[in-house]
Amino acid sequence: MTSPEANPVALLLRDPREVARRCLEEEKLRPLVLSSLAAVALGAAVFGAVVGSFRGDEQILFAAVKVPLALLGALVICVPAFHAIAASLGRPWPLRTVVALTIASAGRAALVLFAAAPVLWLAFDFGLGYHAAALAATGAYGLAGVAALGVLVRALGRGKHALTTAAAFVAVFLAAGGQTGWILRPYLVRPQTSDVPFLRDVEGGFAGALYQASRSSVGIYDRAAQHRDWSADPYGDPSRDRRPSYEPSYEPSYEPSYEPSYDPSHRRSREPMQQPYGAVDDEAPWTEPHPSRGRR
């Protein structure tokens, strides 16, 4: 077995404490950083390709390019903030150390994404629904984030303000990653979407999407109300009447009878799913709106 000492990738996976020490003491950084960058490029690309495979065709390539880009873009934005926040909270590390720590953390996260990709792909192949797929991909990203945090937390040590600094790092990365991801969306696209752009037009933002999603989760569909012509809607204005029919639903009553065993949102071969007006819970930051909404 190759020792972690000799193999930077093994070191990233097995010994985050040693990775953190190397970054802090600026020792043997070149192989570590290069391996981490390679891991980011490969791991995130594979993960992106799997996410894109939910629709297939050109979306596989698009997502394989965009996921590493989003991750690297977020890192570029995070590094100065990490440097300043760490210095202000008692860890005035050199910028080189912060860069190395950030890239190494991202490399570890990308390796976790790489490991999660086959599981996600198999789940897609077994007919995972659209929303469950989004949730599964988010979960994989969360696991990767925890793995990355392992390096950063060990670098912070147990000194004063370590927890505050770690929390600030997480907040900054979520903000940067969320917005870069938002700019480069879509990643996960419904199979029946006929035309997929590489990038969507700027609509709202990550913060706004979080706000909207939190309202949608309690049954308030703001954007549905904005984009619908309610005078022509037989169900009427949902702000006056939020009946259960506006809830997003994938119950068997919407499924075509000839393929009862699959989630209707997944298979490309079927007709576009019949959705009630106002079912807009597909507005997660990385998703594509349902074609029935006619927004593109």
Binding site: A81, I85, Q179
Partner: peptide, 13 residues
Amino acid sequence: LVLAGLAPLAALY
């Protein structure tokens, strides 16, 4: 220092 560090993130948003 903190404001300068947050500047790229602020510019992005």
